[in-house]
């Protein structure tokens, strides 16, 4: 089952971009442009694993919406343009799981979402791409139902690519997510793991090398 995420953001450009990013990362996302509308919709359907809330919203602001989220035990990440510490402190003291300051980088948003979902125990551990199924809890990978043996680092690189599915991930980003920052600069290690993954999982055409940018795991 995919994780379900509620997005309330009044700016159409940001809303659409966040939705696309969430869909690419295999989330089921529902978006509203108005706080009041979101609150009304929550009455019938509140089966969300996480809410991404803007603070300055028409109808009902993000802080007001937070009360409802608490009622339905939906963890909240604020997306705010307010950099003043006062609003950050208010958001976090009231129990928001995290906040992200605009303008933000979509990959960072995805990592934060994943961390919050893991922390509250709602993280859906299963990723799928084509005929490959990856279970992060049991650390098992199957291709067409048959188990495939992966080295730990190969597994981590696969997860990083799956986390940003359909998005190009730079070698530097893979290094910092998998190996940590100490290995920055050693991009050749990434290429070795990628070619191993391609061979073992038969994903030669799915894991695409994008010139000058990095690698992209494509669903279609």
């Amino acid at each position: 089952m995919k994780n379900r995420i509620l997005v309330v953001e009044d700016d159409a450009a940001i809303r659409d971009a966040v939705l696309l990013n969430l869909q690419f990362a295999d989330y089921d996302a529902v978006a509203f442009d108005d706080g009041k509308k979101a609150a009304d919709a929550l009455e019938c359907d509140h089966a969300y694993d996480l809410a991404l809330l803007d603070i300055m919203l028409p109808g009902m602001d993000g802080f007001e919406l937070f009360g409802l989220m608490e009622q339905y035990s939906i963890p909240v990440i604020y997306m705010t343009a307010k950099t003043d510490s006062a609003s950050e402190i208010k958001g976090l003291r009231d129990g928001a799981e995290d906040y992200i300051v605009k303008p933000f980088d979509p990959l960072t948003l995805m990592v934060r979402i994943e961390k919050v979902l893991k922390r509250v125990g709602k993280w859906n551990a299963v990723y799928r791409v084509r005929d490959v199924v990856v279970n992060t809890e049991t650390h098992t990978v199957t291709k067409d139902g048959e188990p495939v043996e992966l080295q730990p680092l190969e597994f981590d690189v696969l997860i990083a690519l799956l986390r940003h599915k359909n998005m190009t991930v730079s070698r530097e980003r893979l290094l910092s997510e998998v190996w940590g920052f100490d290995y920055l600069g050693e991009t050749r290690m990434v290429d070795v793991k990628i070619s191993a993954l391609r061979k073992k999982l038969g994903l030669e055409d799915a894991i695409r090398a994008i010139p000058k940018l990095g690698y992209r795991l494509e669903e279609r």
Partner: peptide, 13 residues
């Protein structure tokens, strides 16, 4: 934010 997000999508997605 809108610009950054969409430019990112166009470039990477």
């Amino acid at each position: 934010t809108g610009l950054l997000l969409h430019a990112g999508l166009l470039r990477r997605a």
